[in-house]
């Protein structure tokens, strides 16, 4: 273990968490107005009809897979009677399908962004940067699936190294040596993932954290009181510049 390992597997994860948490908090507090999907469906309807659900359902499944694989310790699934082999088979199967959906979805989305004049004109530098990081993380992730499953090489059980390392970060007992042992493909995917979360609060990806589940539980028609403030829009209390 050397200082690069400490940097990558201790410093970077904590930096990511710090930036992500404060970044999200700050963005929410000061830029609620910018917190939006910035849908581009008004410009183009046909491609997005397939691309967006494909990508989103794929990425949500991938997210579920990460939670399963990284957060749930191997001995839990073992004691639940799920053998390593069947877990593996399930993970690779579902992972490959959702990964493929995600990859195909994001390719279509990027293709659409590039080829449709209106959508391209509405693509900001921020969007482009975000897409580079997101695509990198997804592609490198697919490579780890191939490596881990043994489709490339002899297979690798990341639940014995990468996953405990991941949990060790949150348990405030970082174990960089576990990650230092992992294959290069896993290492670089982990770095790409952390970089994605580093920029997350500053991109349109923030919309993922406002998934409107509360919609299922509220009454249909919402009433709000105007309150006793001055006529006109209510006072603006937020902004990038200091107010006042």
């Amino acid at each position: 273990m050397n200082s690069t390992d400490i940097l990558l597997w201790v410093a970077l994860p904590y930096l990511t968490i710090a930036v992500f948490v404060t970044g999200m908090f700050w963005r929410y507090k000061y830029d609620k107005f910018g917190w939006t999907t910035r849908s581009s469906q008004l410009y183009e309807r046909k491609v997005i009809r397939i691309a967006s659900p494909l990508f989103h359902l794929g990425i949500l499944a991938v997210l579920g897979g990460h939670i399963m694989g990284l957060l749930i310790p191997e001995n839990w699934t073992d004691s639940a009677g799920l053998s390593e082999d069947s877990y593996h088979l399930m993970a690779v199967g579902l992972g490959a399908v959702s990964g493929a959906c995600t990859l195909f979805g994001i390719s279509l989305l990027i293709y659409r962004r590039r080829t449709n004049g209106a959508v391209f004109a509405a693509t900001s530098k921020n969007d482009k940067t975000m897409y580079i990081f997101l695509t990198a993380a997804i592609c490198l992730g697919l490579v780890t699936t191939l490596v881990g499953s043994g489709i490339i090489g002899d297979g690798y059980n990341y639940r014995e190294t990468v996953s405990p390392w991941f949990r060790s970060i949150f348990l405030m007992n970082p174990q960089p040596n576990l990650m230092a042992e992992a294959p290069f493909s896993f290492q670089i995917h982990a770095v790409a993932g952390m970089l994605l979360f580093l920029i997350w609060p500053f991109t349109r990806l923030v919309h993922a954290f406002s998934a409107p589940v509360q919609y299922l539980f509220r009454p249909y028609v919402v009433y709000r009181e105007r309150g006793p403030h001055d006529p006109g829009s209510r006072p603006v209390k937020r902004g990038w510049e200091r107010v006042g």
């Binding site: 107005f33 910018g34 910035r38 900001s124 921020n126 349109r204 006109g232 902004g239 990038w240």
Partner: peptide, 13 residues
Amino acid sequence: GPFGAASSRPVPV
């Protein structure tokens, strides 16, 4: 704002 047209503040009515 720094994140494109969609950030910063809404124009007050």
